[in-house]
Design a binder for these strands. Structure first.
Lengths: 186, 186, 186, 186
DNA sequence: CATGAATGAGGGTTCATTCAT
DNA sequence: CATGAATGAACCCTCATTCAT
């Protein structure tokens, strides 16, 4: 509503868009400013550095995932728990074009020397895994070692399938994968 | 044997080393030349461009993985198949510091606009998955849909665990994960 | 008295403080506005440009020195003149941290292309030297050439010792210098 | 003779020239490259940073002064010592347009946050003063306190007169100043 | 074979200044 | 009076690439 937030939002949207298309290292501040239709100086009025923009994108992105996981976990109580988690995984991957790319680019940036970003992501991963683990324990696996292992595996599967999706290796057989997971993981 | 190959090898090793440490975008040709102890001009005598070097690293790296998978598959015949595959996965991840980083950096580069690299990797991923799938079918799953799903999942799990390892989220409980996979995947 | 003057004074004080710490070129208008707790726009309401602020600082600073010199000269009449002048010199230098830095920074700025500032300072230097010279003539040196030479020398000594002090070459032996000057300059 | 040194020398000369005219902060690398007739990239091939260039200028400049002082001191043995030192001072100042400006600009830069430069200059100042002091002791002042005080004063006078010269306050009466110093400082 | 030298396009960043509200 | 927002020129620096020798 306020004109203030508008411009910051515009920049964030344009930056996210460009980075989604070309990656972080291939997106210059000039590109972003250009895309928004402002000068580089204006960009620096709203964000103090390129990292600042990246962090902002990361925070927004990481929160979206956190919300999705929490939402997924809450629904579990009323329905068949396994199905819900698998559904979440598949859902997550099929929306790759919009969020999966950003996710991978942020991880690339993080493990390539951007330590503050790495720390941010690290914290979230731990949080996500713990959320999943305690839900798994409560719902359908009564074994600490197993629930922990599964929590690591679930997150790995999402990230791994995203990579394969982005590489466009082949059309992923979501249905088969979902069925397999549901049947085998008890 | 010829000094030519020696120098090309030296460059490749130094480049791989630097890229493993700092990532592709953070490794300049000057860094590589410097590390080898030659001039940038000489570097260009052996490789026609930075991409040329990256392709070379990628080829070498992808072949190593292919060999490992083939090796893994051959051993399956004589031993308990599940154990062998799981062992491979865990092995792959515990050697992350040396090959996992390069793997992720190459994937990052590939999905960030380096189309020729992406194509190279894509081809290998398909090959790897097909190898795994046909082995799974032969050995312990008599169902096309399931074996396909599992082949996608196995590759995902490796990549996904590599990511978590690189993010240093937490110490990965390899033993638990291995046990869980072996027990649940029948 | 009016709130106007208050704000102008506040800006001046903050600007002087920052410039004393970091130098003119390393002090931005944003820094000053920030330090005062106002916006850059407001800063421009009170001062028309960065140079305007610098001139204001310079005027204030130059007046302080002028007053000190006049004060020094007036006291001479009643006391031993040499002692008084030497005392002034030493005094001037021992307060370097607060005023000496600004003095040097202003001179740097002046001789680096800021012509209006240079002119302002030039005028003051001439005035100071003339004041000293006529006082020297009246008090203890009955020779035009000598008194003129000494007036140049006195000012040089102050500036030169300030430089050595700012460079923190070594602890300046003020006592020895004072004694030497008093004993030799008759 | 070698083309190597030629370009480095050319850059150094052009940079010194520009900085002498406009000061360090007002001389951009683009200006220097432009003046030499090369690209900015070439500039960075020969010098690793702007500071690198500044240090080079500083080293060259400081060495010139050191040589002059040593030369001055050596001549003292055969001639009237006071005259020689005074002559040196006056000489130093009358050549201001070429070296005095650079001297002041380097000092400005040093005391405005360029710590490595400050340290370089600091070391030289101490060395210069010690050289002067021990010479004074040997030649014409048999008193440790006095010789030390005088060494500080001599250096101050040079720097101080350089400032007045650069401010173009008035034409400096070199003859009178020289006469005064020689007559009074015994 | 190998190199030193040169390049130019582009990167992120800073900052004095302007102006509508 | 005061401000937030916007600007654009300039700054230092990086780097893949080229080429004469």
């Amino acid at each position: 509503m306020k004109p203030n937030n508008n411009m910051k939002q515009n920049i964030l949207i344009a930056a996210t868009d460009l980075i989604t298309k070309n990656g972080i290292k291939n997106t210059s501040l000039a590109d972003i400013a250009n895309s928004v239709g402002i000068s580089k100086g204006t960009l620096y009025y709203h964000y103090s550095s390129k990292d600042d923009i990246i962090f902002s994108i990361a925070d927004s992105h990481l929160n979206i995932i956190t919300d999705a996981i929490l939402n997924c976990v809450q629904n579990i109580k009323t329905e068949s728990p396994k199905d819900k988690i698998v559904e979440f995984i598949i859902n997550k991957i099929t929306t790759i074009e919009s969020t999966g790319r950003v996710h991978m680019y942020l991880i690339c940036e993080a493990i390539t020397g951007n330590e503050p970003l790495k720390e941010r992501i690290r914290v979230k991963y731990i949080q996500w895994r713990n959320t999943l683990k305690s839900e798994i324990e409560k719902s359908f696996i009564d074994n600490k070692e197993s629930s922990e292992a599964l929590s690591f595996l679930l997150i790995s599967i999402v990230d791994g399938l995203v990579i394969q999706s982005l590489l466009k290796t082949e059309k992923l057989p979501y249905e088969n994968i979902a069925t397999f997971l549901i049947n085998k993981w008890y």
